[in-house]
Write a protein that binds this DNA or RNA. Structure first.
Length: 857
RNA sequence: GCCCGGGUGGUGGAACGGCAGACACGACGGUCUCAAAAACCGUUGCCGAAAGGUGUGCGGGUUCAAAUCCCGCCCCGGGCACCA
């Protein structure tokens, strides 16, 4: 027997797999399909632990599916556009493509060295013009459908990255990539109208039964649907006189989810960025303080805003509006706690029912009108009978935002109040009746800002013509290629590049200017998984028949950090491409596995700057890829965060060595390395053989179930148990004794083959080597039929039962597995006879195969 | 503030409401060795010499039986957040 040497067998088998084209996926085959996909990486340099674990999980799922008889699509590619490549280019006075492609080669080698079963013929690289041209094509299709918009609005600007960012890329007021504070700027930018799909993106979360609940929750939060109503307030003079026939200029609309509290509205607030604000105060004594507030609000950084309990600032505009429900005159204020781009940017303030309005009212001494409170509130009896409008006489301690009973609310007094309440419905109905209100729904989700002022991205295929306006690049002119001669180190950009922007208008033929913004890299990752189904197509992004055949992805695996960003964008793309008639399904990813972060031993995120990055390469160099794979899998459930600690790695290597020996021993090829030492008593030996035969069935059953629910750690633990049973067995029978007996030869062969096949998804090199050299087979364990099991044969003839008295274990008995209940109870009583002596047995509970519980007092 | 997760030995982690701690790591003891390594065998939640007791963040409850279900807290992690 040769010793287990991963450093020799692993590279040799990787080459053999490649030569055999083992992982190539067929385009059409009658077998059922399984599309297993891991999120493609950004080519940042070396493979890190996050990659290693993520891709190991995927590889197990893919290899297991293959052994289950599925046609498997298991591709890999690179999310190759992005800022780090530009930074590297500046640093090394080179081109982003050089850095990117070098890193891709490095990572590809690392992935191969891990033994991942990718179909490299389907590799997709996002910065390849053959790929990004179709991203441009999709942009044009979105445009045709009215899903592209170019508009001026306040946007998030990262000064360090020198580009705008999408809402999803701002984390607590900071840039998702570089952590710099984000600024607000008014700029004209390109948007994908993802809000058109807000409702469907929310509704279809229910379809995603194979997704983790927390991811769906996060998406629902992000989409943030609120049901409510728009209510029109009308500008009036200081005496409360409003025009009888108000025009659009006289109306200010608010969005509210709490129309039931309309009687409690004691002031009215506009956002500092409210469009008509300047006109409202122009030329009045209020203009100066209001404009000062507007200026001050601009200076408050997003980070400060994000910090929460920010002190509120406001100013009176000198104007009034009329509350449509009771014709009361209400002062109009401007305040920095109102968000301009949510709802209408104007709010009816109800201090008694809203903590923010309450704080503001206290600070500026505005009236607080109690109109809702719980029935058991001490103030309730007083206010419920109150006919007038108590304002200051009642000491209102804090805002009451929950459900309650309406008081001092005219004909609605006594109704239930709260979100979606009786009172809310009644008041909205009344407003609708008088033409001053309308049911509506607001979403927190904003349109996706896709333009970036960066070079290393997919150019937006648009042309600015002085005569025709903004026009699309004709399809036949795609791709708009990135110019290769650019000197980023010298500060050159697409906008300043000589030649790139120059073009002629495709409509009028006149001199025009090409759009110089590129698209957010997340546009590239929103459809790459479709390209894998047809990666070499030069006529379309993909052939619909091929995409529909392979898609949706059966198992998607990636980091939790993409819970919103990538996964939401991809769902949006899928729905639009479906509406374009290119796809026949609604959701791209049927099942989603989100792996937890791999952290260092102290629980910190691994990063180059912290110098705590653990490289899988060194571990592979010492113990081989199979040991690293198995150890990663054994560490715990994939969803959980992993504090990296490699103390157990040598133990896993030891296990693989033991397995190697055992398989050789079972098939009579161990030579001097046989585990047999000294024959025990015959009945001990027989039991070891019986147990091994049973364990083989039980473990196959358990490993299959565990892989299917992604409990790889317990699957490996079960294989260890089979190995332990094998060890006992091999110690009990000499190789000669086993070779002389047909029954032994049969059992030995079955167990050896089972061990090899069970290990195949986890440690594919070891399995293939044993498959060929120890078991003497042709080909590879990869793709061999997964072992069968018989649940009946997994059962033991005799079982040990715990005997409890009142739930406490007092004894253990051995009984035949099929013993009648009466016999078992007799045996149980005997076993604890002394303890129940003189007590009355009130009840006996028998759980077959587990325990007997005797309730005796 | 709202919404999700999660608290189990020295460590990673197991446990369809049914013997808590599977499987490992580590530690300790042993076999083999001149010795060490490797390999193999055994012990290992805690207290206790033992009998026994005790034990899954804390306090209650349901149940013959609770890590698991219910109620009330405490701590840790994540998401959303002046979103009306």
């Amino acid at each position: 027997m040769k010793a287990y040497n991963p450093h020799e067998i692993e590279p040799r088998l990787q080459l053999a797999w490649e030569e055999a084209g083992l992982f190539r996926s067929p385009d059409d085959s009658p077998a059922p399909k399984k599309y297993v996909l891991e999120m493609f990486p950004y080519p940042s340099g070396d493979m890190h632990m996050g990659h290693a674990s993520n891709y190991t999980y995927g590889d197990v799922v893919a290899r297991y599916a293959k052994m289950q008889g599925f046609d498997v699509l298991h591709p890999m590619g690179w999310d190759a556009f992005g800022l780090p490549a530009e930074n590297a280019a500046v640093k090394h006075h080179s081109h982003p493509a050089i850095w990117t492609y070098e890193n891709i080669e490095t990572q590809k080698k690392s992935f191969s060295r891990m033994g991942f079963s990718y179909d490299w013929d389907r590799k997709v690289v996002a910065c390849d013009p053959e790929y990004y041209r179709w991203g441009q094509w999709i942009f044009l299709k979105f445009w045709e459908r009215g899903l592209v918009e170019r508009r001026n609005s306040p946007v998030n600007w990262c000064p360090s990255c020198a580009t705008v960012l999408a809402n999803e890329q701002v984390i607590e007021g900071k840039c998702w990539r570089c952590d710099s504070e984000v600024e607000k700027r008014d700029l004209t930018q390109w948007y994908y109208k993802i809000t058109d799909y807000a409702q469907e993106l929310l509704d279809d979360l229910d379809q995603l039964t194979g997704w983790p609940e927390r991811v769906k929750q996060q998406q629902a939060n992000w989409i943030g649907r609120s049901e409510g109503a728009n209510v029109d307030f009308i500008l009036c003079d200081a005496e409360g006189n409003a025009p009888d026939a108000p025009t659009a200029e006289d109306i200010i609309t608010v969005f509210t989810t709490r129309a039931d509290t309309l009687f409690g509205c004691s002031f009215f607030v506009l956002a500092p960025e409210y469009a008509g604000l300047a006109d409202l105060v122009a030329g009045t004594e209020y203009e100066q303080p209001v404009m000062e507030l507007v200026e001050a609000a601009k200076k408050v950084s997003a980070v400060e805003r994000a910090q929460g309990d920010h002190e509120k600032h406001g100013a009176f505009t000198g104007r009034y509006v009329v509350n449509p429900i009771n014709n009361e005159k209400v002062p109009v204020w401007v305040a920095d706690y109102i968000v301009a781009d949510y709802g209408t940017g104007a709010v009816m303030a109800v201090p008694c029912g809203d903590t923010r309005d309450f704080e503001f009212a206290r600070k500026y001494d505005l009236p607080i009108i109690p109109i809702i409170l719980p029935e058991d509130d001490p103030l309730y009896p007083q206010l419920a009978g109150e006919q007038g409008r108590v304002v200051t006489e009642v000491d209102w301690p804090e805002a009451y935002a929950a459900e309650g009973i309406l008081v001092q609310s005219g004909e609605y007094t006594g109704m239930k109040g709260g979100k979606h309440s009786e009172g809310e419905a009644a008041i909205v109905a009344a407003l609708e009746e008088m033409g001053r209100g309308k049911r509506t729904v607001e979403f927190r989700l904003r349109d996706w800002l896709i333009s970036r002022q960066r070079y290393w991205g997919n150019p937006i295929p648009a042309i600015h013509c002085p005569a025709c306006g903004v026009v699309p690049v004709p399809e036949e002119d795609l791709p708009v290629r990135l110019p290769e001669d650019i000197d980023l180190a010298a500060g050159e950009t697409l906008a300043t590049h000589a030649g790139f922007a120059e073009c002629t208008c495709p409509v009028c033929g006149g001199l025009a200017r090409r759009e110089t913004d590129t698209m957010d890299t997340f546009t590239c990752s929103s459809w790459y998984y479709m390209r894998y189904t047809d990666p070499h197509n030069i006529h379309a992004p993909f052939d619909s028949a091929k995409a529909n055949a392979w898609m949706p992805v059966d198992q998607y695996i990636g980091g939790i950090e993409h819970a919103i960003l990538h996964l939401l964008y991809s769902r949006f793309f899928t729905k639009v491409l479906r509406d374009l008639g290119l796809l026949d399904f609604d959701e791209p990813f049927t099942n989603l596995l989100c792996q937890g972060m791999v952290l260092d031993a102290h629980g910190d995120v691994m990063s180059k700057s912290k110098g705590n990055v653990v490289s899988p390469e060194e571990m592979i160099a010492e113990y081989g890829a199979d040991a690293v794979r198995a150890y990663i899998l054994f560490l715990g459930p994939p969803e959980k965060e992993k504090l990296w600690n490699e103390d157990g790695l040598p133990g896993m290597y030891k296990f693989l060595n033991r397995l190697w020996r055992q398989v050789h021993d079972l098939v009579g090829k161990a030579g001097d390395e046989t585990l047999f030492q000294e024959a025990p008593a015959p009945e001990v030996a027989v039991k070891a053989a019986q147990k091994l035969a049973r364990e083989r069935h039980r473990v196959v059953q358990k490993v299959s179930a565990d892989i299917e629910r992604h409990n790889f750690n317990t699957a490996i633990a079960a294989i260890m148990e089979l190995s332990n049973a094998t060890g006992e067995y091999l110690r009990a029978f000499s190789p000669e004794a086993r070779a002389a007996c047909e029954d032994h030869i049969a059992l030995d062969g079955e167990v050896a083959e089972t061990l090899v096949k069970l290990m195949a998804p986890f440690t594919p090199h070891l399995a293939d080597e044993l498959w060929q050299k120890a078991l003497g087979n042709e080909g590879f364990a990869y793709g061999q039929p997964w072992p069968e099991f018989d649940p009946e044969q997994a059962k033991a003839d005799e079982v040990e039962l715990a005997v409890q008295i009142c739930g406490k274990v007092k004894a253990r008995i051995m009984v035949a597995a099929d013993a009648p209940e009466a016999d078992v109870l007799v045996a149980a009583r005997e076993a604890v006879a002394a303890a129940i002596e003189g007590k009355a047995v009130k009840k006996e509970v028998y759980v077959p195969g587990r325990l007997v519980n005797i309730v005796a007092v």
